[in-house]
Design a protein around this nucleic acid. Sequence first.
DNA 1: CTTATTTGTCTATTTATCTAGACAACTAGA
DNA 2: TCTAGTTGTCTAGATAAATAGACAAATAAG
Lengths: 249, 249
Amino acid sequence: MEFVERRSGISLWRQIADQIRIAISNGEYDDRNMLPGEIALAKRFNVNRHTVRSAIASLAREGVVRVEQGRGTFITRRKRLQYPIGRRTRFSEGLAGQIRSRDRVLKDHGLQPAPSHVSRALALEPGATVVRLETVNTADKLPVSRAISWFDGNRFPDFADRYEKYHSITAILKSYGIKDYLRVSTRISAHHADPTTLKDLQLSPGAIMLRTEAINAEIGGRPVEYSNTFFAADRIELDIDHSAPVPAN
Amino acid sequence: MEFVERRSGISLWRQIADQIRIAISNGEYDDRNMLPGEIALAKRFNVNRHTVRSAIASLAREGVVRVEQGRGTFITRRKRLQYPIGRRTRFSEGLAGQIRSRDRVLKDHGLQPAPSHVSRALALEPGATVVRLETVNTADKLPVSRAISWFDGNRFPDFADRYEKYHSITAILKSYGIKDYLRVSTRISAHHADPTTLKDLQLSPGAIMLRTEAINAEIGGRPVEYSNTFFAADRIELDIDHSAPVPAN
DNA sequence: CTTATTTGTCTATTTATCTAGACAACTAGA
DNA sequence: TCTAGTTGTCTAGATAAATAGACAAATAAG
Protein backbone atom coordinates (compact mmCIF):
# COMPACT_ATOMS: atom_id res chain seq x y z
CA MET A 1 0.00 0.00 0.00
CA GLU A 2 1.44 3.29 -1.09
CA PHE A 3 0.96 6.41 0.98
CA VAL A 4 -0.60 9.74 0.27
CA GLU A 5 -1.00 12.49 2.84
CA ARG A 6 -4.18 14.47 3.24
CA ARG A 7 -4.37 18.18 4.12
CA SER A 8 -0.80 18.60 2.98
CA GLY A 9 -1.41 21.33 0.44
CA ILE A 10 -0.87 18.87 -2.38
CA SER A 11 -4.06 17.36 -3.74
CA LEU A 12 -4.27 13.59 -3.63
CA TRP A 13 -4.41 13.25 -7.41
CA ARG A 14 -1.23 15.26 -7.67
CA GLN A 15 0.62 13.14 -5.10
CA ILE A 16 -0.48 10.01 -6.92
CA ALA A 17 0.61 11.41 -10.28
CA ASP A 18 4.02 12.25 -8.79
CA GLN A 19 4.46 8.74 -7.41
CA ILE A 20 3.40 7.07 -10.65
CA ARG A 21 5.77 9.30 -12.61
CA ILE A 22 8.64 8.27 -10.35
CA ALA A 23 7.69 4.60 -10.63
CA ILE A 24 7.67 4.89 -14.41
CA SER A 25 11.09 6.52 -14.52
CA ASN A 26 12.37 3.78 -12.21
CA GLY A 27 11.30 1.30 -14.83
CA GLU A 28 8.79 -0.43 -12.56
CA TYR A 29 6.27 -1.03 -15.34
CA ASP A 30 8.76 -1.90 -18.05
CA ASP A 31 7.57 -5.50 -18.33
CA ARG A 32 4.15 -4.65 -19.77
CA ASN A 33 4.78 -0.98 -20.61
CA MET A 34 1.41 -0.08 -19.11
CA LEU A 35 -0.02 0.97 -15.76
CA PRO A 36 -2.17 -1.25 -13.56
CA GLY A 37 -5.92 -0.67 -13.97
CA GLU A 38 -7.63 2.26 -12.32
CA ILE A 39 -9.39 0.08 -9.79
CA ALA A 40 -6.15 -1.63 -8.79
CA LEU A 41 -4.39 1.73 -8.42
CA ALA A 42 -7.27 3.13 -6.39
CA LYS A 43 -6.97 0.18 -4.04
CA ARG A 44 -3.19 0.50 -3.80
CA PHE A 45 -3.30 4.21 -2.93
CA ASN A 46 -6.43 3.76 -0.84
CA VAL A 47 -8.42 6.44 -2.66
CA ASN A 48 -11.44 6.63 -4.89
CA ARG A 49 -11.15 5.55 -8.50
CA HIS A 50 -12.02 9.09 -9.67
CA THR A 51 -9.03 10.45 -7.81
CA VAL A 52 -6.74 8.05 -9.63
CA ARG A 53 -8.39 9.11 -12.87
CA SER A 54 -7.48 12.73 -12.17
CA ALA A 55 -3.88 11.71 -11.60
CA ILE A 56 -3.74 9.73 -14.83
CA ALA A 57 -5.42 12.55 -16.76
CA SER A 58 -2.67 14.90 -15.62
CA LEU A 59 0.06 12.43 -16.64
CA ALA A 60 -1.66 12.12 -20.01
CA ARG A 61 -1.61 15.92 -20.43
CA GLU A 62 2.12 15.82 -19.71
CA GLY A 63 2.58 13.19 -22.39
CA VAL A 64 3.89 10.55 -19.98
CA VAL A 65 1.05 8.08 -20.63
CA ARG A 66 -1.67 7.52 -23.21
CA VAL A 67 -5.09 6.23 -22.13
CA GLU A 68 -7.18 3.93 -24.33
CA GLN A 69 -10.73 3.07 -23.41
CA GLY A 70 -11.28 -0.64 -22.96
CA ARG A 71 -7.55 -1.40 -23.16
CA GLY A 72 -5.70 0.40 -20.43
CA THR A 73 -3.11 3.11 -19.84
CA PHE A 74 0.15 2.91 -21.76
CA ILE A 75 3.48 4.46 -20.96
CA THR A 76 4.70 6.74 -23.74
CA ARG A 77 7.79 8.39 -22.29
CA ARG A 78 10.18 7.22 -19.67
CA LYS A 79 13.68 8.64 -19.70
CA ARG A 80 15.00 12.08 -18.96
CA LEU A 81 17.55 13.66 -21.28
CA GLN A 82 21.08 13.59 -19.91
CA TYR A 83 22.98 16.85 -19.89
CA PRO A 84 26.72 16.38 -19.37
CA ILE A 85 28.58 18.87 -17.20
CA GLY A 86 32.33 18.86 -17.10
CA ARG A 87 35.27 21.16 -17.62
CA ARG A 88 34.20 21.68 -21.22
CA THR A 89 30.44 22.19 -21.03
CA ARG A 90 28.67 23.37 -24.19
CA PHE A 91 24.91 23.37 -24.54
CA SER A 92 25.22 23.02 -28.29
CA GLU A 93 26.97 19.66 -27.93
CA GLY A 94 25.60 18.23 -24.73
CA LEU A 95 22.46 16.60 -26.03
CA ALA A 96 23.91 15.33 -29.29
CA GLY A 97 22.62 11.87 -30.09
CA GLN A 98 19.69 12.11 -27.72
CA ILE A 99 17.50 14.51 -29.68
CA ARG A 100 16.65 15.34 -33.25
CA SER A 101 16.29 19.09 -33.06
CA ARG A 102 17.59 21.80 -30.79
CA ASP A 103 16.98 25.51 -30.58
CA ARG A 104 17.97 28.50 -28.49
CA VAL A 105 15.89 31.66 -28.40
CA LEU A 106 17.18 34.97 -27.06
CA LYS A 107 14.44 36.18 -24.74
CA ASP A 108 15.98 39.30 -23.35
CA HIS A 109 19.29 41.12 -23.16
CA GLY A 110 20.79 44.35 -21.99
CA LEU A 111 23.53 46.20 -20.15
CA GLN A 112 23.17 46.62 -16.41
CA PRO A 113 25.18 47.41 -13.30
CA ALA A 114 26.34 44.07 -11.92
CA PRO A 115 24.41 42.69 -8.95
CA SER A 116 26.81 41.73 -6.20
CA HIS A 117 26.82 38.00 -6.88
CA VAL A 118 27.59 38.68 -10.52
CA SER A 119 30.47 41.05 -9.94
CA ARG A 120 31.90 38.62 -7.40
CA ALA A 121 31.68 35.68 -9.80
CA LEU A 122 33.26 37.58 -12.69
CA ALA A 123 35.89 39.18 -10.44
CA LEU A 124 34.76 42.69 -11.38
CA GLU A 125 34.42 45.78 -9.24
CA PRO A 126 31.04 46.13 -7.51
CA GLY A 127 28.61 47.90 -9.79
CA ALA A 128 30.66 47.38 -12.95
CA THR A 129 28.62 47.23 -16.15
CA VAL A 130 27.74 43.75 -17.35
CA VAL A 131 25.95 42.27 -20.34
CA ARG A 132 22.92 40.19 -19.41
CA LEU A 133 21.65 37.51 -21.81
CA GLU A 134 18.50 35.49 -21.21
CA THR A 135 17.76 32.50 -23.41
CA VAL A 136 15.34 29.60 -23.54
CA ASN A 137 16.69 26.31 -24.80
CA THR A 138 14.53 23.77 -26.57
CA ALA A 139 15.08 20.12 -27.44
CA ASP A 140 12.71 18.34 -29.83
CA LYS A 141 10.32 21.32 -29.58
CA LEU A 142 10.03 21.00 -25.79
CA PRO A 143 11.69 23.71 -23.68
CA VAL A 144 14.26 22.15 -21.35
CA SER A 145 16.09 25.07 -19.79
CA ARG A 146 16.21 28.80 -19.27
CA ALA A 147 19.59 30.45 -18.89
CA ILE A 148 20.71 33.88 -17.73
CA SER A 149 24.35 34.68 -18.53
CA TRP A 150 26.45 37.64 -17.58
CA PHE A 151 29.65 38.91 -19.23
CA ASP A 152 32.00 41.82 -18.56
CA GLY A 153 30.33 44.85 -20.18
CA ASN A 154 33.57 46.71 -20.74
CA ARG A 155 35.27 43.82 -22.39
CA PHE A 156 32.32 42.61 -24.50
CA PRO A 157 30.19 45.72 -25.03
CA ASP A 158 28.26 44.47 -28.07
CA PHE A 159 28.00 40.85 -26.96
CA ALA A 160 24.23 40.73 -27.33
CA ASP A 161 24.36 42.20 -30.85
CA ARG A 162 26.76 39.53 -31.99
CA TYR A 163 24.31 36.90 -30.81
CA GLU A 164 22.16 37.48 -33.89
CA LYS A 165 25.11 36.67 -36.06
CA TYR A 166 26.75 33.77 -34.21
CA HIS A 167 23.93 32.23 -32.20
CA SER A 168 26.50 30.57 -29.92
CA ILE A 169 28.39 31.70 -26.84
CA THR A 170 31.50 29.83 -27.93
CA ALA A 171 31.49 31.52 -31.34
CA ILE A 172 30.96 34.99 -29.90
CA LEU A 173 33.82 34.56 -27.43
CA LYS A 174 36.00 33.34 -30.28
CA SER A 175 35.11 36.53 -32.20
CA TYR A 176 36.57 38.45 -29.25
CA GLY A 177 39.75 36.41 -29.48
CA ILE A 178 38.99 33.93 -26.73
CA LYS A 179 39.92 30.63 -28.25
CA ASP A 180 38.85 28.39 -25.40
CA TYR A 181 37.22 28.49 -22.01
CA LEU A 182 36.61 25.96 -19.26
CA ARG A 183 34.09 25.42 -16.49
CA VAL A 184 35.51 26.39 -13.11
CA SER A 185 32.64 25.65 -10.77
CA THR A 186 29.02 24.59 -10.84
CA ARG A 187 26.60 24.95 -7.98
CA ILE A 188 23.45 22.89 -8.18
CA SER A 189 20.20 23.23 -6.29
CA ALA A 190 16.58 22.27 -6.75
CA HIS A 191 13.51 24.41 -6.17
CA HIS A 192 9.88 24.65 -6.99
CA ALA A 193 9.77 26.57 -10.23
CA ASP A 194 9.07 30.30 -9.96
CA PRO A 195 6.31 31.85 -12.11
CA THR A 196 8.65 33.07 -14.86
CA THR A 197 10.28 29.68 -15.25
CA LEU A 198 6.90 27.93 -15.16
CA LYS A 199 5.85 30.03 -18.12
CA ASP A 200 9.08 29.88 -20.12
CA LEU A 201 9.44 26.12 -19.77
CA GLN A 202 5.71 25.39 -20.08
CA LEU A 203 5.49 23.74 -16.68
CA SER A 204 2.59 23.51 -14.25
CA PRO A 205 2.72 24.82 -10.65
CA GLY A 206 4.57 22.58 -8.25
CA ALA A 207 6.97 21.56 -10.99
CA ILE A 208 10.62 21.29 -10.07
CA MET A 209 13.53 23.16 -11.57
CA LEU A 210 17.18 22.24 -11.29
CA ARG A 211 19.29 25.35 -10.98
CA THR A 212 22.95 25.51 -11.92
CA GLU A 213 25.09 28.50 -11.10
CA ALA A 214 28.24 28.24 -13.18
CA ILE A 215 31.47 30.09 -13.79
CA ASN A 216 33.48 29.68 -16.98
CA ALA A 217 37.00 31.05 -17.33
CA GLU A 218 39.50 31.37 -20.12
CA ILE A 219 42.64 29.32 -20.02
CA GLY A 220 44.60 31.69 -17.83
CA GLY A 221 41.88 31.50 -15.19
CA ARG A 222 40.20 34.84 -15.85
CA PRO A 223 36.41 34.47 -15.54
CA VAL A 224 34.50 35.26 -18.73
CA GLU A 225 30.97 34.02 -18.11
CA TYR A 226 28.72 33.67 -15.09
CA SER A 227 25.41 31.95 -15.66
CA ASN A 228 22.28 30.75 -13.90
CA THR A 229 20.45 27.99 -15.70
CA PHE A 230 17.05 26.58 -14.76
CA PHE A 231 16.29 23.10 -16.07
CA ALA A 232 12.88 21.40 -16.14
CA ALA A 233 13.71 18.63 -13.70
CA ASP A 234 11.24 16.17 -15.19
CA ARG A 235 12.80 16.44 -18.62
CA ILE A 236 16.51 16.43 -17.97
CA GLU A 237 19.17 15.28 -15.54
CA LEU A 238 22.74 16.45 -15.07
CA ASP A 239 25.65 14.18 -15.67
CA ILE A 240 28.83 15.32 -13.95
CA ASP A 241 32.14 14.21 -15.36
CA HIS A 242 35.01 14.29 -12.87
CA SER A 243 37.69 12.99 -15.20
CA ALA A 244 40.96 14.80 -15.70
CA PRO A 245 40.70 18.01 -17.74
CA VAL A 246 40.95 17.73 -21.50
CA PRO A 247 43.88 19.66 -22.96
CA ALA A 248 42.86 22.68 -25.01
CA ASN A 249 42.75 21.92 -28.72
CA MET B 1 1.57 41.14 -8.55
CA GLU B 2 2.77 37.61 -8.05
CA PHE B 3 0.95 34.71 -9.63
CA VAL B 4 -0.65 31.62 -8.19
CA GLU B 5 -2.53 29.10 -10.26
CA ARG B 6 -5.85 27.64 -9.17
CA ARG B 7 -6.99 24.06 -9.77
CA SER B 8 -3.39 22.99 -10.25
CA GLY B 9 -3.32 20.31 -7.57
CA ILE B 10 -1.24 22.56 -5.34
CA SER B 11 -3.21 24.52 -2.79
CA LEU B 12 -2.84 28.28 -2.93
CA TRP B 13 -1.26 28.49 0.51
CA ARG B 14 1.35 25.98 -0.55
CA GLN B 15 2.20 27.85 -3.76
CA ILE B 16 2.52 31.05 -1.77
CA ALA B 17 4.72 29.38 0.84
CA ASP B 18 6.95 28.04 -1.95
CA GLN B 19 7.32 31.48 -3.52
CA ILE B 20 8.05 33.18 -0.21
CA ARG B 21 10.64 30.51 0.62
CA ILE B 22 12.38 31.15 -2.72
CA ALA B 23 12.25 34.91 -2.18
CA ILE B 24 13.84 34.49 1.25
CA SER B 25 16.65 32.32 -0.08
CA ASN B 26 17.22 34.89 -2.83
CA GLY B 27 17.83 37.43 -0.09
CA GLU B 28 14.89 39.62 -1.09
CA TYR B 29 13.99 40.51 2.49
CA ASP B 30 17.52 40.85 3.81
CA ASP B 31 17.18 44.58 4.45
CA ARG B 32 14.62 44.25 7.25
CA ASN B 33 14.94 40.50 7.87
CA MET B 34 11.16 40.22 8.02
CA LEU B 35 8.27 39.54 5.66
CA PRO B 36 5.78 42.17 4.52
CA GLY B 37 2.55 42.21 6.55
CA GLU B 38 -0.18 39.67 5.93
CA ILE B 39 -2.48 42.21 4.34
CA ALA B 40 0.23 43.41 1.96
CA LEU B 41 1.08 39.81 1.00
CA ALA B 42 -2.60 38.98 0.45
CA LYS B 43 -2.89 41.93 -1.91
CA ARG B 44 0.30 40.99 -3.73
CA PHE B 45 -0.77 37.38 -4.33
CA ASN B 46 -4.38 38.44 -4.88
CA VAL B 47 -5.78 36.05 -2.26
CA ASN B 48 -7.51 36.29 1.07
CA ARG B 49 -5.50 37.14 4.13
CA HIS B 50 -6.35 33.76 5.69
CA THR B 51 -4.74 32.00 2.77
CA VAL B 52 -1.52 33.92 3.33
CA ARG B 53 -1.73 33.02 7.00
CA SER B 54 -1.83 29.33 6.11
CA ALA B 55 1.28 29.77 3.98
CA ILE B 56 3.13 31.57 6.77
CA ALA B 57 2.02 28.98 9.33
CA SER B 58 3.59 26.26 7.21
CA LEU B 59 6.84 28.21 6.84
CA ALA B 60 6.83 28.65 10.62
CA ARG B 61 6.44 24.88 11.09
CA GLU B 62 9.45 24.40 8.83
CA GLY B 63 11.43 26.81 10.93
CA VAL B 64 11.99 29.28 8.10
CA VAL B 65 10.16 32.15 9.83
CA ARG B 66 8.98 33.06 13.32
CA VAL B 67 5.68 34.94 13.81
CA GLU B 68 5.17 37.46 16.62
CA GLN B 69 1.79 38.92 17.31
CA GLY B 70 1.69 42.67 16.98
CA ARG B 71 5.19 42.82 15.53
CA GLY B 72 5.39 40.85 12.33
CA THR B 73 6.96 37.78 10.77
CA PHE B 74 10.71 37.37 11.06
CA ILE B 75 13.06 35.32 8.95
CA THR B 76 14.97 32.77 10.99
CA ARG B 77 16.80 30.70 8.38
CA ARG B 78 17.92 31.63 4.95
CA LYS B 79 20.79 29.69 3.43
CA ARG B 80 21.06 26.11 2.29
CA LEU B 81 24.06 24.07 3.33
CA GLN B 82 26.62 23.63 0.57
CA TYR B 83 27.77 20.13 -0.16
CA PRO B 84 30.95 20.02 -2.25
CA ILE B 85 31.27 17.35 -4.92
CA GLY B 86 34.57 16.77 -6.62
CA ARG B 87 37.04 14.04 -7.37
CA ARG B 88 37.54 13.55 -3.65
CA THR B 89 34.05 13.63 -2.18
CA ARG B 90 33.67 12.61 1.48
CA PHE B 91 30.50 13.18 3.44
CA SER B 92 32.45 13.35 6.65
CA GLU B 93 34.35 16.40 5.46
CA GLY B 94 31.98 18.16 3.10
CA LEU B 95 30.02 20.21 5.59
CA ALA B 96 32.93 21.11 7.86
CA GLY B 97 32.68 24.69 9.03
CA GLN B 98 29.01 25.01 8.17
CA ILE B 99 27.53 22.91 10.95
CA ARG B 100 28.20 22.08 14.57
CA SER B 101 27.17 18.44 14.68
CA ARG B 102 26.93 15.65 12.15
CA ASP B 103 25.70 12.10 12.36
CA ARG B 104 25.20 9.08 10.15
CA VAL B 105 22.82 6.29 11.08
CA LEU B 106 22.86 2.87 9.44
CA LYS B 107 19.23 2.23 8.56
CA ASP B 108 19.49 -1.08 6.75
CA HIS B 109 22.05 -3.39 5.22
CA GLY B 110 22.36 -6.80 3.62
CA LEU B 111 23.71 -8.95 0.85
CA GLN B 112 21.70 -9.17 -2.37
CA PRO B 113 22.01 -10.14 -6.00
CA ALA B 114 22.98 -6.98 -7.86
CA PRO B 115 20.20 -5.18 -9.74
CA SER B 116 21.29 -4.52 -13.31
CA HIS B 117 22.18 -0.84 -12.80
CA VAL B 118 24.36 -1.80 -9.83
CA SER B 119 26.28 -4.57 -11.54
CA ARG B 120 26.84 -2.31 -14.51
CA ALA B 121 28.15 0.54 -12.36
CA LEU B 122 30.49 -1.69 -10.37
CA ALA B 123 31.61 -3.61 -13.48
CA LEU B 124 30.46 -6.92 -12.01
CA GLU B 125 28.73 -9.83 -13.69
CA PRO B 126 24.95 -9.55 -13.79
CA GLY B 127 23.47 -11.02 -10.64
CA ALA B 128 26.74 -10.96 -8.69
CA THR B 129 26.34 -10.63 -4.93
CA VAL B 130 26.62 -7.09 -3.58
CA VAL B 131 26.56 -5.47 -0.17
CA ARG B 132 23.82 -2.88 0.22
CA LEU B 133 24.13 -0.15 2.85
CA GLU B 134 21.42 2.38 3.60
CA THR B 135 22.20 5.37 5.81
CA VAL B 136 20.56 8.60 6.87
CA ASN B 137 22.82 11.60 7.31
CA THR B 138 22.07 14.36 9.74
CA ALA B 139 23.51 17.85 10.17
CA ASP B 140 22.72 19.87 13.28
CA LYS B 141 20.04 17.30 14.19
CA LEU B 142 18.17 17.84 10.91
CA PRO B 143 18.31 14.97 8.37
CA VAL B 144 19.81 16.20 5.11
CA SER B 145 20.32 13.10 3.02
CA ARG B 146 19.61 9.42 2.63
CA ALA B 147 22.18 7.25 0.88
CA ILE B 148 22.12 3.75 -0.53
CA SER B 149 25.57 2.36 -1.35
CA TRP B 150 26.57 -0.88 -3.02
CA PHE B 151 29.91 -2.69 -2.87
CA ASP B 152 31.24 -5.92 -4.39
CA GLY B 153 29.97 -8.68 -2.11
CA ASN B 154 32.81 -11.07 -2.94
CA ARG B 155 35.48 -8.55 -2.28
CA PHE B 156 33.96 -6.98 0.84
CA PRO B 157 31.80 -9.74 2.34
CA ASP B 158 31.61 -8.31 5.85
CA PHE B 159 31.48 -4.65 4.85
CA ALA B 160 28.31 -3.94 6.82
CA ASP B 161 29.72 -5.55 9.98
CA ARG B 162 32.76 -3.36 9.88
CA TYR B 163 30.48 -0.31 9.77
CA GLU B 164 29.82 -0.65 13.50
CA LYS B 165 33.52 -0.42 14.17
CA TYR B 166 34.63 2.25 11.70
CA HIS B 167 31.49 4.31 11.07
CA SER B 168 33.05 5.62 7.84
CA ILE B 169 33.22 4.34 4.28
CA THR B 170 36.74 5.63 3.86
CA ALA B 171 37.95 3.84 6.98
CA ILE B 172 36.30 0.57 6.02
CA LEU B 173 37.83 0.63 2.56
CA LYS B 174 41.19 1.35 4.15
CA SER B 175 40.73 -1.70 6.37
CA TYR B 176 40.43 -3.71 3.15
CA GLY B 177 43.69 -2.21 1.90
CA ILE B 178 42.21 0.47 -0.33
CA LYS B 179 44.24 3.52 0.54
CA ASP B 180 42.42 6.00 -1.64
CA TYR B 181 39.49 6.29 -4.00
CA LEU B 182 38.16 9.00 -6.30
CA ARG B 183 34.82 10.04 -7.72
CA VAL B 184 34.47 8.97 -11.34
CA SER B 185 31.03 10.24 -12.25
CA THR B 186 28.00 11.85 -10.66
CA ARG B 187 24.56 12.00 -12.19
CA ILE B 188 22.18 14.53 -10.69
CA SER B 189 18.43 14.77 -11.00
CA ALA B 190 15.56 16.29 -9.05
CA HIS B 191 12.25 14.66 -8.17
CA HIS B 192 9.35 14.95 -5.85
CA ALA B 193 10.36 12.96 -2.81
CA ASP B 194 9.04 9.41 -2.60
CA PRO B 195 7.27 8.24 0.59
CA THR B 196 10.35 6.56 2.09
CA THR B 197 12.49 9.64 1.61
CA LEU B 198 9.73 11.90 2.93
CA LYS B 199 9.73 9.88 6.11
CA ASP B 200 13.49 9.44 6.52
CA LEU B 201 14.25 13.11 5.92
CA GLN B 202 11.18 14.40 7.79
CA LEU B 203 9.76 16.20 4.76
CA SER B 204 6.18 16.96 3.83
CA PRO B 205 4.54 15.79 0.59
CA GLY B 206 5.50 17.78 -2.47
CA ALA B 207 8.98 18.32 -1.09
CA ILE B 208 11.85 18.05 -3.51
CA MET B 209 14.79 15.70 -3.35
CA LEU B 210 18.05 16.03 -5.20
CA ARG B 211 19.29 12.64 -6.30
CA THR B 212 22.93 11.87 -7.02
CA GLU B 213 24.01 8.62 -8.58
CA ALA B 214 27.75 8.30 -8.08
CA ILE B 215 30.58 5.92 -8.87
CA ASN B 216 33.81 5.90 -6.87
CA ALA B 217 36.86 3.99 -8.03
CA GLU B 218 40.22 3.17 -6.59
CA ILE B 219 43.29 4.70 -8.13
CA GLY B 220 43.72 2.12 -10.85
CA GLY B 221 40.19 2.86 -12.04
CA ARG B 222 38.47 -0.20 -10.62
CA PRO B 223 35.03 0.77 -9.27
CA VAL B 224 34.57 0.18 -5.54
CA GLU B 225 31.37 1.98 -4.62
CA TYR B 226 28.14 2.79 -6.38
CA SER B 227 25.71 4.99 -4.49
CA ASN B 228 22.37 6.74 -4.78
CA THR B 229 21.96 9.69 -2.45
CA PHE B 230 18.76 11.65 -1.88
CA PHE B 231 19.20 15.16 -0.49
CA ALA B 232 16.47 17.36 0.98
CA ALA B 233 16.58 20.06 -1.67
CA ASP B 234 15.43 22.81 0.66
CA ARG B 235 18.28 22.17 3.10
CA ILE B 236 21.27 21.63 0.89
CA GLU B 237 22.77 22.43 -2.48
CA LEU B 238 25.55 20.74 -4.41
CA ASP B 239 28.75 22.50 -5.21
CA ILE B 240 30.65 20.95 -8.08
CA ASP B 241 34.38 21.46 -8.27
CA HIS B 242 35.84 21.01 -11.75
CA SER B 243 39.43 21.75 -10.89
CA ALA B 244 42.25 19.39 -11.71
CA PRO B 245 42.39 16.23 -9.58
CA VAL B 246 44.27 16.33 -6.33
CA PRO B 247 47.20 13.90 -6.22
CA ALA B 248 46.71 10.99 -3.86
CA ASN B 249 48.23 11.57 -0.45
C1' DC C 1 -22.03 -13.92 -29.74
C1' DT C 2 -21.01 -13.80 -24.93
C1' DT C 3 -18.37 -12.57 -21.15
C1' DA C 4 -14.92 -10.39 -18.41
C1' DT C 5 -12.19 -6.44 -18.08
C1' DT C 6 -11.03 -2.12 -19.19
C1' DT C 7 -11.88 3.22 -19.45
C1' DG C 8 -15.73 7.01 -19.87
C1' DT C 9 -19.65 9.64 -18.01
C1' DC C 10 -23.16 10.98 -15.03
C1' DT C 11 -25.45 12.27 -10.42
C1' DA C 12 -25.24 13.07 -5.56
C1' DT C 13 -22.95 13.82 -1.25
C1' DT C 14 -19.20 14.80 1.89
C1' DT C 15 -15.02 17.03 3.09
C1' DA C 16 -11.38 20.47 2.52
C1' DT C 17 -9.91 24.89 0.87
C1' DC C 18 -10.60 29.64 0.09
C1' DT C 19 -13.12 33.94 0.76
C1' DA C 20 -15.33 37.66 3.52
C1' DG C 21 -15.88 40.41 7.38
C1' DA C 22 -15.67 41.71 12.21
C1' DC C 23 -13.22 42.29 16.19
C1' DA C 24 -9.69 40.97 19.84
C1' DA C 25 -4.82 41.04 21.36
C1' DC C 26 -0.41 42.71 21.11
C1' DT C 27 3.56 46.11 19.85
C1' DA C 28 5.90 50.35 18.97
C1' DG C 29 6.05 55.05 18.60
C1' DA C 30 4.05 59.70 19.12
C1' DT D 1 -2.13 57.28 27.14
C1' DC D 2 -3.54 57.17 22.56
C1' DT D 3 -3.09 55.59 17.90
C1' DA D 4 -1.66 53.08 13.89
C1' DG D 5 -0.18 48.83 12.47
C1' DT D 6 0.57 44.26 13.31
C1' DT D 7 -1.01 39.14 14.20
C1' DG D 8 -4.88 36.04 16.40
C1' DT D 9 -9.59 34.22 16.49
C1' DC D 10 -14.16 33.61 15.40
C1' DT D 11 -18.41 33.01 12.26
C1' DA D 12 -20.49 32.21 7.80
C1' DG D 13 -20.65 31.12 3.06
C1' DA D 14 -18.70 29.87 -1.59
C1' DT D 15 -15.76 27.03 -4.32
C1' DA D 16 -12.93 22.96 -5.19
C1' DA D 17 -11.47 18.21 -4.18
C1' DA D 18 -12.64 13.69 -2.97
C1' DT D 19 -15.95 9.91 -2.27
C1' DA D 20 -19.72 6.76 -3.65
C1' DG D 21 -22.36 4.31 -6.80
C1' DA D 22 -24.45 3.16 -11.22
C1' DC D 23 -24.14 2.31 -15.81
C1' DA D 24 -22.29 3.18 -20.72
C1' DA D 25 -18.74 2.18 -24.19
C1' DA D 26 -14.80 -0.05 -25.95
C1' DT D 27 -11.63 -4.11 -26.14
C1' DA D 28 -9.99 -8.77 -26.12
C1' DA D 29 -10.59 -13.52 -25.58
C1' DG D 30 -13.24 -17.68 -25.51
